[in-house]
Amino acid sequence: MLDRYGRSINYMRISITDRCNLRCRYCMPDGIPWVPMEEILTYEELEMLAREAAGIGIRRIKVTGGEPLVRRGCPSFVGMLKRVPGIEQVTLTTNGVYLADYAEELKENGLDAVNVSLDTLNPQRFFEITGRDALGRVLDGLDAALQYQIPLKINAVLQKGRNEEEWPELASLARERRLDVRFIEMMPIGHGRNYESIANEEILRQLEMQYGPLARDNRVHGNGPAVYYRVPGYQGSIGFISAMHGKFCEYCNRIRVTSTGDIKSCLCFEDRISVRDALRAKDTQEVRNLLDLAIRNKPAAHRFEETDMVTEQQEMSSIGG
């Protein structure tokens, strides 16, 4: 389906929970309340949503959270989505703590790819950022995904004064393993407003100081707006999502659905359309109408570079990262 700016919207991110087993300071610090379980959409309701979304042109779905693997039955839900006519790809974003436990089951249910959020390879700093001592389990999860041949990306967010010097170690994961590493600029959403963004162009500059001019990697790596580069001797590529120091809105192809059934057409703004009542009434035509409305009302561009114009106040964990 085309929005009013002529963009083809074929990608939907579905959050299945606002719960998480980590407490990353910029996403879900301690004290953030969870919504009651009765307000969270059931898997059957989410499958209905996916069917209606496929009917208007959604072809790819990303399952997110919170942490999706803390919700019982997540791998089976991936299988449910894979069986929806018209859905061509189902991927998952996770913090990786439970990935080794579920990698085989996710593969059996047809998962097409997984993104793992990982901001440091230093155990003490991992604890400082996430509030948990679980780095070893995350690294086991990476190895398990590769063992079961699930295409893998690392999402790393650098924080001023915390981990900005660790980019070489994080980038080296793409040298040592067959995976891509993406650096994502901190966005001023929720507690992310309290952290200074590290410009991706600076990381690219330092990479090129070490390796010389890097060639763009124009192969399709996924559904997001990352720009990728090939680094000599690396098995995978290095990608950059530059929300603060770059603008990719003209190519945006996505909508988001929160775990409570709010459709968001842009992460930057508070605007949302609730589809929960229509789903619970099994009013499929109204579900489709609301999806259509959200897509048609999608704004031309975000305003992350003007932080006073960012109206979204909720935490990333409740929106669906």
Rank of each mutant, 00 (worst) to 15 (best):
R178P: 01
Q149S: 14
G161W: 03
E164I: 06
Y148G: 02
D180E: 10
E166Y: 04
Y148D: 00
S172H: 14
E185W: 01
W167G: 11
E164Q: 15
I184D: 01
N155G: 00
I150H: 09
K153Q: 08
Y148Q: 07
R162G: 00
L170E: 06
R175A: 14
A156N: 08
R178A: 13
V157T: 14
E169S: 15
E185R: 03
R175L: 04
V181E: 07
V181F: 00
L173A: 05
V181L: 10
N155M: 07
R177P: 05
Q147P: 01
Q159C: 07
I150S: 09
Q159M: 15
A156H: 13
L158S: 12
L158G: 10
R182T: 10
L146V: 12
V181I: 02
E176R: 15
A156V: 04
A156I: 08
R182F: 00
E176G: 04
I150K: 13
I150Y: 11
L170R: 10
L173H: 12
I150Q: 10
P168D: 06
K160Q: 14
E164K: 02
A174D: 01
I150A: 12
E166M: 11
R178N: 14
R177Y: 15
G161K: 05
E166L: 04
P151E: 09
L158E: 08
D180V: 06
Q159V: 14
N163C: 09
G161T: 04
E165H: 14
L170C: 10
E165G: 10
Q147S: 12
E165I: 11
L170D: 08
N155A: 08
I150G: 01
Q147G: 05
L170N: 11
K160E: 13
I184F: 08
E185A: 05
I150V: 14
V181D: 02
P168W: 00
Q149K: 15
I150D: 02
L146K: 10
P168M: 01
E176S: 11
E166D: 11
D180Y: 10
R177T: 02
P151F: 08
Q149P: 00
L173C: 08
E169N: 09
L179W: 08
K160G: 05
F183D: 00
E164L: 13
E176V: 11
N163Q: 06
L152V: 09
W167I: 01
V157E: 07
K153N: 11
P168Q: 05
I184P: 00
L179Q: 07
P151L: 07
E176M: 03
G161D: 03
R162T: 14
E185I: 07
L158W: 07
E166T: 13
E169D: 14
P151Y: 07
E165M: 10
E166W: 05
L170S: 07
R162P: 00
F183E: 09
L179S: 12
L146Y: 12
N155I: 06
P151A: 11
L179I: 08
E169C: 03
E166F: 02
D180N: 15
L173T: 14
R175M: 11
K160A: 14
R182N: 06
E165C: 00
I184A: 04
E166P: 00
E165W: 13
L152F: 04
K160L: 01
R178Q: 13
E169A: 14
E185Q: 09
P151H: 11
R177D: 00
R175T: 01
I184N: 03
I184K: 07
L146C: 05
Y148E: 04
Q147Y: 14
A174Q: 02
L170W: 02
P151R: 11
